[in-house]
Design a protein around this nucleic acid. Structure first.
Lengths: 233, 233
DNA sequence: CACTAATGTTACGCGTCGATGACACCCATG
DNA sequence: CATGGGTGTCATCGACGCGTAACATTAGTG
């Protein structure tokens, strides 16, 4: 389901101009756009390559969007794919039907691309480990947001405030390098000024707290760039 | 508060279509849905029939959701009812403010009904070591609501009124951090103004109360955040 | 292989936060 | 009216965590 950095979005919309507009916006946002003009084409596209999310126009020639959504929910291959419905104003009342069909969100036309992208990201976020419970799990590490606790396996890991925030950030943004400045922005908050090297020290402290569980290798140095949190050594 | 199988959920939301949508989803999930369009209607509905949980829109005409939440926390009748806030696409500021108001959880719009139901169940489960009889048990600690008594193993624990309420709240909301403000809201009720530090003192007294049974470690400090009640050290 | 920049590591002082004990007040109860 | 338990507030003390600098080590570079 995950294809590196780029998320694959399937646009199912009969009007070519709208399709193109959306596709353009998606690409600009760093996503891959697939297109289909009707239900038939959509199913073929999915069979060929499963997308991470489907944008589905309410009104389609032939099989309606709602009907297609229902159908997709029934098939094993497409059951888990989040769907965002594109509805025109006045069709909102049918939300209930859409929900019944398992649609994840609605965007009402006309919409700004900014809003659309935001919604897509929100839905994608939810459909990945972030189930809303505030729990994040990565390898043997587990972080319980509500309880403000970290577990390695099922043992509690004693950890201080800043280390906790740093680890939390890393766990929610793994497999990616962050510069010291970026880490300061995200973990410390942009308003405070501290030396960049301070990050090093906290990285050190984080490693040390993970040491008893041999997890210190998850915090990795990328020389000349910054740090990365990763499963693989 | 327990009405057989069906949990009673009160939806407070001004927009009828959203209200209906949620109500539909709730019923499909086997819950009873009550509805209210504003704070006034909500209070009337609660007075008539106390729900098991309240879904509260952040933006309401007249009295805001936040304000209503505070008010509900002040009244004896509604103090114990878990609240889930429905907030618009706001940032963490909403989150913080909401949690400070003694809200149990919040869900950001737009949300999928799947997510909403999951959260509701999570919150209901959490505030329900209570099996309906008013008995709560956690580790060697047992609390008898109707009798207003606490037992460690089978010995009775002498405990004062405030300590009792604090412990009761902790027992029904374990494994989760609460700020001093949150504890004040939930245990003291929002209507009285007391210093935040007072919480520290009662934490201390509660710990001392539990000491003879070596249970004082269940009350845990989370530096910079608040306190947590937990089984594991 | 030597040199240098980047990172690792340790130590230390300071500030913040929490723990604790003392105290005054309130209210119920005898 | 007196007594005592219960509660909120305050001042103090101590522990903890944080940021910084100083020193050690490593990894690129020519």
């Amino acid at each position: 389901m995950d294809h590196g950095v780029h998320k694959r979005i399937l646009i199912v919309e009969d009007e070519a101009s709208i399709r193109e507009m959306i596709a353009f916006a998606l690409r600009k946002a760093g996503m891959d756009a697939m297109q289909a003009a009707d239900a038939r084409a959509a199913q073929l596209a999915i069979a060929e390559q499963v997308p991470d999310l489907i944008l589905l126009d309410w009104m389609l020639p032939g099989t309606s969007g709602l009907e297609l959504a229902r159908r997709l929910r029934k098939e094993e291959l497409s059951r888990e794919i989040p769907i965002i419905m594109l509805t025109a104003r006045g069709e909102e009342m049918d939300r209930v039907n859409g929900l019944e069909a398992g649609v994840d969100d609605y965007v009402v036309k006309p919409f700004s691309t900014r809003e659309l992208i935001a919604r897509i990201k929100a839905v994608l976020r939810r459909s990945q480990g972030d189930d809303g419970s505030g729990m994040v799990e990565l390898g043997r590490l587990r972080i319980d947001g509500p309880a403000h606790r970290v577990f390695a396996g099922d043992e509690a890991v004693p950890i201080g405030p800043t280390e906790y925030r740093l680890l939390y950030f890393f766990m929610t943004h793994p497999e990616r390098v962050y510069s010291r400045t970026q880490l300061l922005d995200h973990v410390w908050g942009g308003s405070v000024y501290v030396e960049e090297r301070t990050v090093d020290v906290h990285i050190r402290r984080l490693r040390k707290t993970l040491e008893p569980w041999k997890l210190e290798d998850m915090v990795q140095t990328v020389r000349g760039t910054g740090y990365r949190f990763s499963l693989s050594a």
